[in-house]
């Protein structure tokens, strides 16, 4: 298996956030991670790329433990697009995407125009080429999100972590973005882990679904098997109808709230 998480636990100070999480995944997969606020979704992503050090357990990529890799080596394998897309200074879009090349600058056998080619490809794939020369903080939220994804693709990662990628996007851009992510996962054989609140999009675009609840992985499996009304009701207290649309695929209809959210 390409990514293997074993018995991972993490706590902030003394508050447990993740308890014995196990997950294995391989390249080319798109995995959606859903769950209520504070269930540890983002923390899980941060543990995977080692910006947070887990209290127990291990994360290995191709059998190599993340905790023994340098930050640069991790960045060559794993790209992480965080929730915030804000950039503090008005860097041009081109400069911003070029930053993604940082971990590869000292690679052996690297050629002069490798960086430019990778940046070009990343910008082309994400449709950000046309504003290469614009300051990134003048772009709209959706455009900026695509720039961030372009930057992560410039890293040429094998694993792509996305934290709420559709946040603040127009509904049509949300679909565009997930189409893009699916295409990239397939074409470039990247493993994509998406943390999201959007059950509808997760159902439509992910190969597998992880439902997190109470600091643990509650349910995991093929989307078709996990995205069922019983599971959604149990975790989100939402009444749903799940159907298959001939044109688009799995369709989750959120109907309404049922029961109360017990504190968990």
């Amino acid at each position: 298996m390409d990514l293997e998480i074993k018995d991972l636990s993490f706590s902030y100070d003394k508050r447990d956030v993740l308890c014995s999480v196990d997950l294995t995944a391989k390249r080319g997969e798109v995995i959606g991670i859903i769950g209520q606020n504070g269930c540890g979704k983002t923390t899980l992503l941060k543990c995977i790329n080692s910006t947070l050090k887990p209290g127990a357990g291990s994360v290995t990529v191709d059998g190599r433990s993340i905790s023994e890799m340098s930050r640069k080596d991790i960045a060559k394998k794993i790209a992480f697009v965080t929730q915030t897309t804000s950039i503090s200074f008005p860097f041009s879009v081109y400069d911003t995407v070029m930053m993604g090349r940082y971990p590869r600058l000292e690679d052996e056998g690297r050629k002069e125009d490798d960086d430019a080619k990778a940046v070009f490809q990343a910008m082309k794939d994400t449709g950000t080429l046309k504003f290469a020369d614009r300051p990134v903080n003048e772009l709209s939220g959706g455009e900026r999100r695509r720039v961030m994804i372009a930057r992560s693709l410039a890293q040429e990662p094998e694993i792509l972590l996305l934290d709420e990628p559709t946040l603040h996007l127009d509904i049509n851009h949300q679909f565009d973005l997930l189409e893009l992510i699916n295409k990239l996962a397939e074409e470039k054989n990247i493993l994509v882990l998406i943390v999201t609140h959007d059950i509808v999009l997760a159902a439509r675009y992910c190969d597998r679904i992880v439902i997190m609840q109470n600091k643990r992985i509650h349910k995991i499996g093929e989307t078709l098997k996990v995205m069922i009304p019983e599971n959604l009701k149990e975790t989100f207290y939402i009444e749903t109808e799940v159907s298959e649309d001939d044109r688009f695929g799995l369709n989750v209809l959120l109907i309404g709230k049922c029961g109360d959210a017990a504190d968990d």
Partner: peptide
């Protein structure tokens, strides 16, 4: 410096020590 100026968390994600 460019990476950190753009955002510290993201700089770490891209391999800056």
């Amino acid at each position: 410096l460019n990476l950190v100026a753009a955002g510290e968390e993201q700089a770490v994600n891209m391999g800056v020590n």
